[in-house]
Design a protein around this nucleic acid. Structure first.
Ligand SMILES: NC(=O)c1ccc[n+]([C@@H]2O[C@H](COP(=O)([O-])OP(=O)(O)OC[C@H]3O[C@@H](n4cnc5c(N)ncnc54)[C@H](O)[C@@H]3O)[C@@H](O)[C@H]2O)c1
Ligand SMILES: NC(=O)c1ccc[n+]([C@@H]2O[C@H](COP(=O)([O-])OP(=O)(O)OC[C@H]3O[C@@H](n4cnc5c(N)ncnc54)[C@H](O)[C@@H]3O)[C@@H](O)[C@H]2O)c1
Lengths: 216, 216
DNA sequence: TTTTATTAACGAAAATTTTCTTTAAAAGAA
DNA sequence: TTCTTTTAAAGAAAATTTTCGTTAATAAAA
């Protein structure tokens, strides 16, 4: 009797996934320096992590290393990018074109990582109808209509915290399957939606806490 | 023989620290709704997490709950903010006033979480001498001189990835003790510096990966 | 050719984090 | 008052993640 109760069975560990983009950044630098191979030993030394952790992390992808040589840089970059979903561009809507939303709209970097913001939604009459970095800003009320024409899966949530839950619920209703949540609020949604919390304040909290131990 | 080899002994777990700001956001909302008490059960239900995890996380602070009642909202907010270092304002320098750097400069929110950016440094002649949100932008070369007058501990790193290691090394030389690193690069520094990596791409990678399992 | 050194891969062990279980306290109902 | 229900707290167990140890492959040196 297979207890396939949808627990995280065989999922790639989240810590590994989080480390992979840092390997990618390292590898791109190695490529720029015309290195053809890198070993886990070198990656680990340069990045200040454990070499077996590098090997284990990379083993979740399809790359195979060569004993006494390491990994071939260019294929590894390609495989990692493919594995992480940075190669296929996903379209996204941005909800809340305020301070942080603007920054994300202005960022050229995101498209290199597989994300393209195709429209923004807000409720502030002063900005609706305008464009930021070529991305049009619509009223929230137009969201459902837009979704009928153009099915977009990903929503970037940068509204004020107090509206996070409401807006999240609303956009999932409209067919959004993945929410990149920048508010410090946890949002509660069904099992069929992925919510990725990215609270900058969480990182600040960790930094402050760890710094306390230095000061002594 | 005490093996006090500076391993993480008795440190507050990083996952707990990361969750704490989300409790704070929840509590502030509860306060706005004039709730005087909240129980871990309610927090957990509303936030979609495990109730004992809430209790355990909060137990790292000095708060004590009341059986059959829960925690008093206002003291808990105060204690959490104090515990997380959000109450005492730390000054910070920003390095790299580009796209992301600008967003952080324009953000009013940060000061509510204990961080105040007092100056920015860059190498782009077009922006040096200007101000963004009242924060002056200086040339990198002026950093060491500035540090002599005004000791600042925290550096926010938003330079292009390829300069991350170099700039990090340089600012630690000038006395920076904590680096909030927004580049996707891991940087290698001595034991007496705290580096907090905040790579947005890491979060994207996790989101894309988890979304794959929905699509099936 | 033989030896030595380096490294990927794999499984085991250790450490960490989360979840479960139990206990005791106390508010509210009977 | 006594009983029932809710909840914090503390410790145990389970799950997850990291680190360690071993093996086999192979490039380079002798
Ligand atoms: N600004 C930052 O750098 C920063 C950093 C970390 C976290 N955050 C978090 O990100 C969120 C947004 O922060 P911000 O500084 O950009 O705030 P902001 O006030 O500048 O922007 C919020 C935007 O959302 C819009 N909005 C309000 N209600 C809406 C609704 N129902 N639907 C659609 N849009 C709506 C507002 O009109 C505004 O344009 C907050 O939760 C904040 O805590 C921001
Ligand atoms: N823009 C984003 O939203 C975003 C998102 C995630 C991660 N990042 C990362 O943040 C970093 C910066 O991104 P960005 O988009 O702001 O880049 P950007 O090019 O817009 O800004 C970088 C700034 O750093 C300055 N700079 C360059 N060399 C410097 C030096 N030696 N000392 C001081 N300043 C220097 C540049 O003049 C520029 O103003 C990158 O590593 C990027 O990957 C950015």
């Amino acid at each position: 009797m297979s207890t396939d109760n949808k627990k995280k069975e065989g999922l790639v560990p989240e810590p590994s996934l989080r480390r992979m983009p840092t390997y990618l950044a390292y590898l791109k630098m190695a490529k720029n320096q015309n290195q053809q191979f890198v070993s886990s030993t070198h990656i680990a030394r340069d990045m200040g992590v454990d070499p077996t952790q590098v090997t284990k992390d990379l083993s979740y992808t399809s790359i195979v290393g060569k004993t006494r040589v390491g990994y071939e840089v260019e294929p590894l970059i390609n495989i990692l990018e493919e594995f992480l979903g940075f190669r296929t561009i996903d379209e996204a809507y941005l909800f809340g074109a305020g301070s942080l939303g603007n920054a994300l709209l202005l960022d050229h970097g995101l498209s290199q990582f597989g994300l393209k913001i195709v429209a923004a939604f807000d409720v502030d009459a002063n900005i609706i109808g305008k464009e930021i970095a070529g991305v049009p800003i619509y009223h929230m009320d137009d969201f459902h209509k837009m979704q009928e024409e153009k099915q977009v899966n990903i929503g970037i949530l940068t509204v004020p915290s107090e509206y996070a839950q409401k807006v999240a619920h609303d956009i999932v209703d409209g067919g959004i399957k993945g929410i990149w949540n920048f508010t410090p609020m946890r949002i509660r949604l069904g099992e069929d939606v992925v919510v990725q919390d990215t609270s900058l304040y969480a990182h600040l909290a960790v930094m402050f806490n760890r710094m306390q131990y230095l000061k002594k």
